[in-house]
Design a protein around this nucleic acid. Structure first.
Length: 371
RNA sequence: GGGUCGGUGGCAGAGCGGUCAAUUGCACCAGACUGUAAAUCUGGCGGGCUUAGCCCUACGGGGGUUCAAAUCCCUCCCGGCCCA
């Protein structure tokens, strides 16, 4: 059995679950820090663990290019390679269909990427994407999908759904590792009929988990929020549901309300490198001059290494002089913040007070105004 | 003492008669970032206002030439280099 998923508590559509993988179990809803190139940028595995990370991401496209999936396989797999012993989920390269749109050609056979590094060709068929992820040895692999932009024509959107279903079938047929779970990805943009239709097709193929792709690709967050409940409900209830690439804290809360279980996003690390701190009382930009003499930690009650040891003034200084410790410390804090948020969400669901928690968070974090 | 080159916005450094409130970089100030082509990118950066524009003060000081000067001339002050 590749994974086991159990739902322990629910509150309306929100769920508290437990997901067991080959490299360990954790409770959901869970946030997964992104480690695209076999590294959560600027943060060591020890620091990740200390910040509370249970599962992290890797990327098929990026690791196939460098160092190459066979090299990683020969070195003992991705876990050994990057010294992360916990669960790993690998994305299929489907997002690069969107983010590297100018560098690829796509047809029913697969995607042809012109490497963004040196222009070399990388052909990613559904079978190849699965093979790469088997070589990497992740606990959860994702089907190759076509992720269209939110501006895509309706015809293009239908095409992406058709292709993603076709490819999901081929991925499933090519998949051989029994210690790895393969998740399907539902597309369909903001078109609810298309989403439902895609979800039904995927459900027939009986995957151990399902993801919603094609969000945070240019649409307004409110549009995503309004469409998530229907999209989530269309997925098999007993299986883990993963909202790919999302998001800001308020987006995750909306998604948990809709019934999603897994999340990943580059925001805590990318924004951390860019001096942007997430806190339960709103965001802070550590480069801003108001922190120059502030002896307080970023967040007084945060247990992370950054907040236990360092002042805002010190963080401000590190970013002013461009010291690499700044991005590292803030990434640690932001990851810790995201994981504390998830823990608070789980506790609230367990005690059937999630709806109230959700509302209070938005008020405290100052996000309520923007909603 | 003589010669020579130069003094431009916080710094470095363009401009060498009008299109200059002045290119550019740094610094500074603010913003963005959603399955990572991102330790990245964008905007602001003399002052004021009735702010798609207008007015004032500004390219070492003073004086001059010109319709018009950061740009040309004179002089003073200051700095680098060379010669005594």
């Amino acid at each position: 059995m590749s994974i086991r998923f159990q739902i322990l508590h629910t509150e309306s559509a929100a769920r508290l679950g437990c997901l067991e993988t080959t490299h360990g179990a954790f409770e959901t809803p869970m946030f997964m820090p992104v480690g695209t190139r076999a590294s959560v940028k600027g943060v060591t595995p020890d620091q990740l663990r200390a910040a509370g990370a249970k599962i992290i991401l890797g990327n098929t496209y990026h690791l196939a290019l460098r160092p190459g999936d066979e090299i990683i396989r020969d070195l003992g797999g991705l876990h050994r390679f990057m010294a992360w012993e916990g669960p790993i989920l690998t994305d299929s390269g489907g997002f690069q269909v969107f983010s590297l749109a100018d560098l690829r050609k796509i047809n029913d056979d697969g995607v042809e990427f012109r490497s963004h590094i040196d222009g070399q060709l990388l052909q990613l068929s559904p079978e190849r994407a699965v093979k790469i992820q088997e070589n990497l040895g992740s606990d959860i692999a994702m089907c190759l999908d076509e992720c269209p932009s939110t501006n895509a024509e309706p015809e293009k959107l239908r095409e992406a759904v058709r292709r993603s279903v076709l490819w999901a079938k081929r991925c499933r047929d090519a998949h051989t590792r029994t210690d790895q779970a393969l998740f399907a990805i539902v597309q369909g943009g903001l078109d609810l009929d298309l989403r439902r239709q895609c979800a039904d097709e995927m459900a027939k193929l009986d995957f151990p988990g399902y993801a919603l792709g094609g969000f945070s690709v240019g649409e307004a967050p409110e549009q995503m929020h309004s469409v998530l409940p229907v999209c989530a409900a269309a997925l098999p209830e007993a299986k883990p549901r993963y909202l790919m690439g999302v998001g800001r804290p308020e987006d995750i809360l909306a998604a948990v309300t809709a019934g999603l279980d897994l999340f990943d996003c580059v925001l805590p690390t990318r924004n951390g490198r860019n001096a942007f701190a997430f806190t339960f009382s709103g965001s802070k930009r550590l480069r801003n001059a108001c922190h120059r003499r502030d002896p307080a930690p970023i967040e007084a009650d945060c247990p992370c290494y950054c907040c236990r040891q360092f002042s805002r003034a010190y963080l401000h200084h590190l970013f002013q002089v461009d010291e690499m410790l700044g991005p590292t410390l803030l990434s640690i804090h932001n990851i810790c913040f995201y994981l504390r948020l998830m823990a608070a969400i789980r506790a609230a669901i367990r005690e059937k007070r999630f709806e109230d928690y959700h509302r209070r968070f938005l008020t405290l974090a100052g996000h309520g105004i923007r909603e």
